[in-house]
């Protein structure tokens, strides 16, 4: 099966495929994925928290029907955890267990120099693939059917890890000093996500296509809720989205993102709400806002916000 001809024939096909996997995306997202598959480049996805950056990679994996391999980055992540590790314990244990065997090899030789010479023929066995513990990156390269590789929150990792990734991202290969260079059996589709906790290096950006996912537009957000939670009535959906969109324009620390909207929709569904009202919103505000100050700011304007949201519904019934 070839992705390019099969799954990435056109941008529309990608968009439909994503929609079938319950991920509503705009055309920019679809275009970027389509391009990434066709020119075999990694995609760097940026945007505020909770707009579906990680979800995107999962859905693409589902769409392609290949496994998803994920590396969660954090400060201190290094190649021994991301790429490979020697099974030191196993190496040491085998040396001990094979002691007798080694003795017999050694005993047949009289001279020390000869023994050493003889040993040299064996030393590499301990640094062979049998003693290699593959970590996510190496696993991703070894998959014969291709894979979606998600390097999550790359901005949390140290800069040296980023530098180390460059070889993987540009050539889809890694170098292991003791063994040599391992090339990808099948080039994986790579997604990197970043919350912009720090500026990423130019070198990394240069090797990736870049995708910025902003907060969704009202229409897109309604569509997402419709797909994810079809049980929600149309009226409530419009009101909710109008309310959320209004909250995002407030001066708050963490504006609610699409994942919070979905959570809120679930909550409202559980409470059998038909339409928004002030009391209901006041009670469930902590689902969409996660900071005490933010909730206070929103509560002050609750009356006007709710009224606006209810009005928005009337205005848009024609849509």
């Amino acid at each position: 099966m070839d992705w390019k001809t099969d799954k990435f024939f056109s941008v529309e096909q990608v968009m439909d495929g994503m929609k079938a996997a319950h991920y509503i995306c705009d055309s920019q997202v679809a275009t970027t994925i389509y391009l990434a598959a066709n020119i075999e480049k990694p995609v760097l996805v940026e945007g505020p928290a909770g707009v579906g950056k990680t979800e995107l990679a999962k859905v693409v994996a589902e769409y392609l029907e290949v496994p998803l391999i994920r590396i969660q980055c954090y400060e201190g992540l290094d190649e021994s955890k991301a790429l490979y590790e020697w099974k030191y314990g196993k190496q040491l244990l085998y040396t001990q267990l094979l002691k007798d065997k080694l003795d017999t090899i050694m005993n047949t030789q009289d001279k020390l120099a000869d023994s050493i010479e003889k040993l040299h023929q064996y030393d590499d066995i301990f640094f062979s693939p049998h003693f290699l513990e593959p970590r996510p990156l190496l696993k991703a390269l070894e998959q014969p059917d291709g894979v979606v590789l998600l390097i999550d929150e790359i901005d949390k990792a140290d800069e040296e890890f980023e530098a180390f990734l460059l070889e993987v991202l540009s050539d889809f290969q890694v170098s292991i000093p003791e063994i040599g260079t391992i090339k990808a059996v099948r080039k994986p589709l790579v997604f990197l996500t970043s919350n912009n906790a720090r500026e990423l290096s130019e070198a990394l950006k240069r090797r990736c296509l870049h995708l910025y996912i902003p907060y969704p537009s009202a229409a897109l957000e309604r569509e997402v809720i419709k797909t994810r939670l079809p049980q929600i009535g149309e009226k409530l959906r419009k009101q909710m989205v109008a309310f959320i969109q209004a909250v995002r324009t407030l001066d708050i620390r963490k504006p609610p993102s699409i994942s919070e909207t979905i959570d809120w929709a679930r909550v409202l569904l559980l409470m059998h709400a038909e339409s928004l009202n002030r009391e209901l919103v006041g009670k469930t505000l902590n689902v969409i806002l996660k900071h005490e100050e933010d909730i206070r700011v929103a509560e002050e304007k609750l009356v006007s916000l709710t009224a606006e949201a209810l009005k928005a519904d009337d205005g848009m019934t024609g849509e």
């Binding site: 941008v11 275009t31 391009l35 990434a36 480049k41 995609v43 950006k205 296509l209 870049h210």
Partner: peptide, 28 residues
């Protein structure tokens, strides 16, 4: 990248052309 992206997307659809260039040229 932009050149190959443009070749893949073609020049006829202005929106797709723009999106393709945006993904390969603008990185923040």
């Amino acid at each position: 990248d932009a050149v190959s992206a443009a070749q893949i997307m073609g020049y006829d659809n202005r929106r797709l052309f723009k999106e393709a260039l945006s993904a390969s040229l603008a990185k923040s």
